[in-house]
């Protein structure tokens, strides 16, 4: 029972991070039908940016009040990662929109390889261990075989995720930008004819997706305390799995899928085999795509003949 409760907490925390990344996949897929293969590496880049900014605040400004520096780092890395993805979209994907369907995917694979190796070259191959932050824990149960704990980190992750998702939901549902996004999803050409700036809308989608991935990156850095240039790939694939499982194109689906993948991963590690935990995620990805490509909340797609 204690193990179960602990894994539930851990799974939801991890799932929040996956959900934030998954939104980036799902939004881009929804609006231009592209699997943004480089999104996981954008996430990894944001974790590095966050780590560097954290240390810069301490080292150069002697600023070590944790909570305010967390807020500064969070917003700064959202902005910088957003700028990165803006430039990436502009240089690597925009011209390919009218090309054959696999062209943007191949370009994104190239971008993914470029980004991970760029960070590798710029920051070196070693794991970077961040100083521990928010490491206090609350004991939820004690006296049993096993103390169930809830760390401040975990609370912070879930709360930040919830708040930012709410803000994001407002943007997508209530603002002209969100309306333009939905219009482009339905029919980009028609939207353009009706005066929607399609290029700007798509750019905004990439920026928002990257900003949410940056939130995930900051929280990931905080949670695991270690980042590495190779860290984009596996979380990226898992978040993509989350997006597919939830129904690609559906934003609530991405969050739901993220939570499910987080839970499945932690429970799988706890009850079956930690060695094969990535196999679980990859298998879910394959099985979902093969047997229910519309996912849990996605809309069915009718093949156009």
């Amino acid at each position: 029972m204690e193990v179960f409760l602990q894994q539930l907490i851990n799974g939801l925390t991890l799932g929040s991070i996956y959900g934030l990344i998954a939104i980036g996949y799902t939004m881009v897929f929804g609006i231009i039908g592209m699997v943004n293969f480089a999104h996981g590496d954008v996430f990894m880049l944001s974790a590095f940016i966050a780590l560097i900014l954290f240390i810069a605040l301490q080292q150069f400004f002697g600023f070590d009040a944790l909570a305010p520096s967390f807020v500064i780092v969070l917003f700064a890395s959202m902005a910088l990662t957003g700028l990165w993805n803006f430039v990436i979209e502009r240089l690597a994907y925009r011209r390919l929109r009218g090309s054959f369907r696999l062209a943007p995917l191949i370009s994104a694979i190239g971008m993914s390889i470029f980004l991970s190796n760029f960070v590798y070259v710029a920051q070196g191959p070693r794991n970077k261990s961040a100083p521990p932050m928010f490491s206090e824990v609350i004991k939820l149960t004690s006296g049993g075989a096993y103390d169930v704990t809830l760390s401040y980190k975990q609370i912070l992750i879930v709360v930040v995720t919830a708040v930012l998702l709410a803000a994001f939901w407002f943007v997508v549902q209530k603002t002209p930008l969100g309306r333009a996004q939905r219009a482009c999803e339905q029919d980009a050409k028609m939207a353009a004819l009706l005066g929607v700036d399609v290029n700007r809308t798509i750019a905004a989608t990439f920026v928002i997706g990257a900003a949410l991935a940056a939130v995930a990156g900051v929280l990931y850095m905080l949670y695991y305390g270690v980042v590495n240039a190779a860290d984009g790939f596996v979380p990226g694939v898992k978040a993509f799995t989350a997006a597919v499982l939830g129904g690609i194109g559906s934003i609530p689906g991405a969050v739901l899928g993220g939570l499910l993948i987080g839970l499945i991963e932690t429970f799988w590690s706890a009850y079956f085999s930690a060695d094969y935990k990535d196999v679980a995620a990859f298998s879910i990805l394959a099985v979902t795509l093969i047997f229910m490509p519309t996912g849990l909340l996605g809309r069915p797609e009718v093949e156009k003949v």
Binding site: S107, I109, M111, F114
Partner: peptide, 11 residues
């Protein structure tokens, strides 16, 4: 790094 860049440029 160069291989990735080459793929993007080629596409």
């Amino acid at each position: 790094l160069l291989v990735g860049l080459a793929m993007v440029v080629m596409m």
